[in-house]
């Protein structure tokens, strides 16, 4: 069993007004040193069927491409952790 920890973020070329609003709020709080804010989505998926890390990675790539990310404007990256079956 594998745990996939997936981050989906806007590509750098895509405007992210939400992240900009957070950065402006941080400036208001006095954090002048924050020069960049990235804001995205985080998913944790438990995969019970995958026999190997390669197989799990293939499935996660497919899931990201088909649903979790819109590859027109978002990119994703993830880590896979092997879990004990009873977890």
């Amino acid at each position: 069993m594998y745990l996939a920890k997936i981050h989906v973020n806007y590509k750098r070329s895509i405007l992210n007004p939400e992240a900009q609003a957070v950065q402006t709020a941080l400036l208001r709080l006095g954090y002048q040193d924050v020069t960049s804010v990235q804001l995205g989505k985080y998913f944790e998926l438990k995969l019970t069927g995958s026999q190997s890390k390669e197989q799990a990675a293939k499935e996660v790539d497919e899931i990201c491409d088909r649903l979790l990310a819109n590859v027109n404007m978002e990119s994703y990256h993830y880590q896979l952790e092997e879990l004990a079956v009873a977890e």
């Binding site: 806007y10 007004p17 404007m73």
Partner: peptide, 17 residues
């Protein structure tokens, strides 16, 4: 329609959020 890929591109958050 864009998410279903019947049309190209996508709709993102308005510039002024």
């Amino acid at each position: 329609l864009t998410e279903a890929r019947l049309l190209p591109g996508s709709l993102q958050r308005n510039q002024q959020s």
